[in-house]
């Protein structure tokens, strides 16, 4: 389980749209396997009947009232876009 091979690294990279050169896959597979192995030590702890902790702080989710309090800031939204046209983000064509 903790063994991550080159193909898995390539697949995760593809899913995350991170470009990784072929010659780096081997090294990353080793590093990621080590990390997974380290995390898997946690499996040695018996967690049966223990509710997963959602937050280390004892607090509840804050609910917001249904009011329009934001938006109308198109320039700010688009400012980091590599390309914007007619108020849209313009990206290389993605078509089904």
């Amino acid at each position: 389980m903790s063994d991550i091979d080159k193909a898995t690294v390539a697949k995760i990279a593809r899913l995350s749209r991170i470009k990784i050169e072929e010659d780096r896959l081997e090294g990353l597979a080793g590093e990621l396997s080590n990390i997974m192995g380290w995390i898997e030590q946690l499996n040695e702890v018996d967690t049966d009947n223990i509710t997963p902790m959602a937050s280390p702080v004892d607090t509840k989710l804050r609910w917001r009232a249904d009011e329009v309090s934001d938006g109308d800031k198109r320039d700010a939204v688009l400012i980091n876009a590599p390309q914007g046209e007619y108020g849209f983000f313009a990206v290389p064509k993605v078509i089904e």
């Binding site: 917001r64 249904d66 009011e67 309090s69 934001d70 938006g71 800031k73 198109r74 108020g87």
Partner: peptide, 23 residues
């Protein structure tokens, strides 16, 4: 709903593009 699930931007149909978008 008037506002979005996790932000205060409006949900109304047919607005100008990207005018009902919060950060």
């Amino acid at each position: 709903s008037k506002a979005k699930l996790f932000s205060g931007a409006a949900t109304a149909f047919g607005a100008e593009p990207n005018t009902q978008v919060s950060l």
